[in-house]
Design a protein around this nucleic acid. Sequence first.
DNA 1: AGCTAAAAGTGACCTAAATCACTTTTCAAG
DNA 2: CTTGAAAAGTGATTTAGGTCACTTTTAGCT
Lengths: 190, 190
Amino acid sequence: MKEKLHLLRQHFEEIVSLTDDEWDFIQSHFEFKSLKKHQFLIQVGQPVAFEYWIIKGLVKAYSIDEKGKEHILQFAMENYWVSDHCAFQHQEPGTIFVDCLEDSEFFCLSLENREKICFEVPAVANFFRIKSNNGYINLQQRILSLLTMTAESRYEYLLNKLPKLIQRVPKKLIASYLGVSRETLSRFNS
Amino acid sequence: MKEKLHLLRQHFEEIVSLTDDEWDFIQSHFEFKSLKKHQFLIQVGQPVAFEYWIIKGLVKAYSIDEKGKEHILQFAMENYWVSDHCAFQHQEPGTIFVDCLEDSEFFCLSLENREKICFEVPAVANFFRIKSNNGYINLQQRILSLLTMTAESRYEYLLNKLPKLIQRVPKKLIASYLGVSRETLSRFNS
DNA sequence: AGCTAAAAGTGACCTAAATCACTTTTCAAG
DNA sequence: CTTGAAAAGTGATTTAGGTCACTTTTAGCT
């Protein structure tokens, strides 16, 4: 567990500096969780008690439409944060599913604990501020890609941006992330 | 100007509390700017020196594709923050245009000043953290709406969510925000 | 190694929405 | 009030991508 917490500290310290005392305080607010492939981290209608930092593994966050079709909001792997941020923030029942594509391990942070460490340790507030801002920028680019690019160029773009992800994820899920049908994706380039 | 700065303070204090001393320090890091309809706040290729808080007015943030078609990333009005966040954050040339749909007024915050007030006044770090997080949540919902909904239901959804905006913006721009052609939007409901 | 199930590929057909071309309406500026 | 330009509406046609049905390939279990 020590090495795992060390990884989390490194993750924070990529962005802000922390004293040992600050870190001791911070880390005591996280819980550990481990799940096998296919298990759910978050389910529609269930409470969303935590935000999760992924120690190892890979998950998908998605919603299911009336026709039963899956739409992938996000893939998240090592060093990523994932949650149903909306439900988490407002402490409401989940609106999406998050499940494991591989056996995965997480550090879990409750809303109460997040606010506590943010207001107690300013560096943490700055850490999450910068992280959120980067996330915002990424989502803006994804929106632009959905508005301006064809399905095929979105695929090429993703291949360039996250080549490692493509290796770890079935193409039908990539299709669902890009907003294209499996069949159409399969007809691209090759 | 006093009342305008007061509006900005109120905007901060909707989220975090500030002492008068803190506020004096914070407000000294903003500049005022005023633009007429059709003038540019940000242009592709130009430096993006600021993040802008809108005192009054309305702007659109958009990119232009190879065919000259406009794709609207964001509308922003009173109390909204707007910038080319990506270019701003990395201090690179602008990648989008932002121009005024109405005569508008702004408070401008440079990256240097933003970081200064965030690290100097923890409440500000928390303010931007929470703002960014909310922005992230909104963008996630927009992405889901692009992935899961038809053009028509996206339109209805927007009509419900931001009815005031629709009044102030030509429908062809709404179309461009929704990722639909002007003609198709015009054929919806009525 | 052998077997099952999931993933991927592919052809035929269909449809939502884009595009193009034109008309009508609205609005702002002299 | 008039007028020119921008916005909005509408019909005809095209097209990117979806859907359906089926085959082939790959990968995980025992």
